[in-house]
């Protein structure tokens, strides 16, 4: 909603377009899973999911028409999640780097 006064009312067409896009992306994500892209499979899947989430947040959840603090709050949750994931994985990904010493 805008900072003051009546909130923005999106036209019906916007919602239907978003719905169509979400459906198309669902078909895409299922389809692409059956091709062998190696390590890219997971990246593609996550990217498509992020795009879907982004348009849900933007249009269904009206963040596009919201105050900056709402943008910030919505972003904070996701950014914090990514940081938590990255730092935890920093441990697991580097565990094998240092070989165990041979018996001494």
């Amino acid at each position: 909603m805008s900072e003051h006064g009546q909130p923005h009312i999106a036209p019906l067409k916007t919602y239907l377009n978003v719905f169509a896009a979400l459906m198309a992306l669902t078909v895409l994500t299922v389809g692409v899973a059956y091709f062998d892209l190696g390590a890219m499979n997971i990246l593609v899947a996550v990217t498509i999911a992020c795009i879907k989430a982004y348009i849900v947040i933007l249009y269904f959840m009206h963040v596009k028409y919201s105050a900056r603090i709402i943008w910030l709050t919505a972003a904070a949750g996701f950014i914090w999640f990514v940081l938590m994931f990255a730092l935890t994985l920093a441990d697991y990904a580097t565990r094998g780097w240092l070989p165990f010493p041979e018996a001494w």
Partner: peptide, 8 residues
Amino acid sequence: QSMYAGMI
């Protein structure tokens, strides 16, 4: 925990 993560 991995030593490298520990350093970070």
